[in-house]
Design a binder for these strands. Sequence first.
DNA 1: AGTTTTCCTGATTTGATACTCAAAAATCAG
DNA 2: CTGATTTTTGAGTATCAAATCAGGAAAACT
Lengths: 220, 220
Amino acid sequence: MSKSATVVALGKGERTAAKIREVALDQFSRLGFERAAMGAIAAAAEVSQATLHYHFQDKDQLWRSAMLELAAVISEEERLLSAARDASPLAQLRMAMRLFLQISWRHPALGRIVALEGMAGGERLDWLNEHLLGPRNRRLAELARRAMAAGDLKPFPPEMLVITLQAGAAGVINLAPLMRSAFGIDPDTVEGRAAHEDLILNALVQGLLADRSETTEETP
Amino acid sequence: MSKSATVVALGKGERTAAKIREVALDQFSRLGFERAAMGAIAAAAEVSQATLHYHFQDKDQLWRSAMLELAAVISEEERLLSAARDASPLAQLRMAMRLFLQISWRHPALGRIVALEGMAGGERLDWLNEHLLGPRNRRLAELARRAMAAGDLKPFPPEMLVITLQAGAAGVINLAPLMRSAFGIDPDTVEGRAAHEDLILNALVQGLLADRSETTEETP
DNA sequence: AGTTTTCCTGATTTGATACTCAAAAATCAG
DNA sequence: CTGATTTTTGAGTATCAAATCAGGAAAACT
């Protein structure tokens, strides 16, 4: 046993394992499962490749372990949302979108992995759904359904709506390299993030069309 | 020289090359560049692996060649859009979205590849931008800019708007596996596509909020 | 027909990557 | 400090995928 007075002192093993998970999460998210090489992860974590296999049986286990880091992130959102359970479904949806944006900017790996595995399908996607995506998505879809029932949202297939909102919101974050290559713009700046949040919450949730009844001046 | 009277008769070589490109496009888009194996492509195209290297020097060239197939698709959109050059920027944007949806359903490979490479960055993304993505994106951004100048759109960074629209619209298409795994729903059906087009054009372009001034009944 | 050119393939080489293992090094408890 | 335990590693294996090449089949041309 080894604890310091204030902070839990991790044993050496757990410390390197944590570092490996961190590096692995980054690489998996940026490159995808196959492109991310154990050797590269080891190098980035400044350990030998064999150390990876000491802490995690194989690449697949490492991936799963790294993903479970993200579970904590998602459960944070769940906690905040459940605290506001008495708000209207639409208000909850809006809040979920805001949380989604904040979390996505803080942990861009999440969105990239969902996109990568969500396109490819397969075992890892099923695992993701079972362990950290499915419940959240179904909860959001249910919120959308209720918002529609309340007449706050136009009636659309709620599952499509949820996926579309998330994909649209994550687009600018996930496709930052594309924005750099196509426009020479880096969206990940203070102003960029603010503009993005503004865009999503206004454009996607309130509509892209300017209200033509009150034209001319105004700077909202 | 070898042409038939009515149709250009492709030489044997060009025929197999075309088949290889077709198969390769599918595999690259579904699996990504690295996961797609030359052996599997060869098998699917019913030729030997060496044949791939006869027609295309290496995997990279094959990828580029397959991508150029998509250039035709995009130029079709360009043609239709330029025919309507005198419409308002907003109308053109709307039309572009509709075209984007149709084309994306018909060629799901396009969106998947843009997403894959757009997240990863690197040489292939730069190549894509230079050869078949950049001009289109800049044109759309310019349309958005003009729609904003005309007061039809709220003022947002036009590049972000374009990316968000595309990502949101392609979301349901690209993430079909996720929708199956999470919701047990297959969006790629006749009704699914219709609902999707409805969702995007209404929700993303006209706003998600129902007009509360005219509540109660109505079934639009 | 015969001849030339194009096209295709089996066998092989090259390179990279996940994974193993025995032994060394670091860590920790008493 | 000392011995036991945990952690790390260098070296090595097995596997799989990309790329090469020489020889032979098919097509095109005269």
